[in-house]
Amino acid sequence: MDSANPPVRFDTKIAVLLREDLQTWQRLNVTAFLVSGISSRVPEVIGEPYADADATDYLPMFRQPVLVFEGTKEALTTSHSRALSRVVPMSVFTSDLFSTNNDRDNRAAVAAVPQSQLDLVGLAVYGPRNAVDKILKGARMHP
Rank of each mutant, 00 (worst) to 15 (best):
L76M: 04
P6E: 10
Y50V: 08
I38H: 08
S81I: 02
P65C: 01
S40E: 15
N29G: 10
L84Q: 15
P65H: 06
G37L: 06
W25E: 06
R9C: 03
M61V: 13
V30T: 11
V35I: 15
W25T: 07
I38T: 04
R82F: 00
H80M: 06
T72I: 02
S79K: 07
S81V: 04
D21Y: 03
F10Y: 09
L84E: 08
S3V: 10
R63K: 11
A51W: 07
E44R: 11
I46T: 10
L18N: 03
E20K: 08
I14S: 13
F62T: 15
S81N: 10
K73N: 03
A15N: 12
L22Q: 02
V68D: 03
V16F: 09
A53Q: 14
Y58N: 14
Q23G: 05
L76E: 01
P60H: 12
S39A: 15
P7M: 02
D57F: 13
R9L: 09
L67D: 13
S3I: 10
R27N: 01
E70C: 08
G71Y: 03
T56C: 07
F10E: 04
L34W: 07
G71W: 02
V16I: 13
L59C: 14
V35F: 12
P49E: 09
L84S: 14
R9T: 12
L28P: 01
D11L: 07
D52R: 13
Y50M: 14
E74M: 04
A32Q: 13
Q64H: 04
M61Y: 10
D11G: 14
P60R: 14
S36E: 15
P7W: 05
R19G: 03
L22I: 02
Q26D: 02
V35K: 15
D57M: 14
K13Q: 12
D54I: 02
V68L: 11
P43L: 00
W25M: 05
A4K: 11
P65I: 01
T56Y: 06
L22V: 00
I14M: 12
L22W: 03
P49C: 11
D57R: 14
A51G: 09
A15H: 12
P7G: 05
K13F: 01
V35W: 12
D11C: 05
S85L: 14
P6A: 05
P60Y: 10
T72E: 01
T24H: 09
Q23N: 09
V35L: 14
M61A: 15
P65A: 09
I38G: 06
S36Y: 13
E20D: 13
A83M: 11
D52G: 06
R82G: 04
D21N: 07
T31P: 06
G37Q: 12
V68C: 12
A55D: 09
V66F: 10
G37P: 05
A53K: 15
N5L: 01
I46S: 08
E20H: 09
S3C: 03
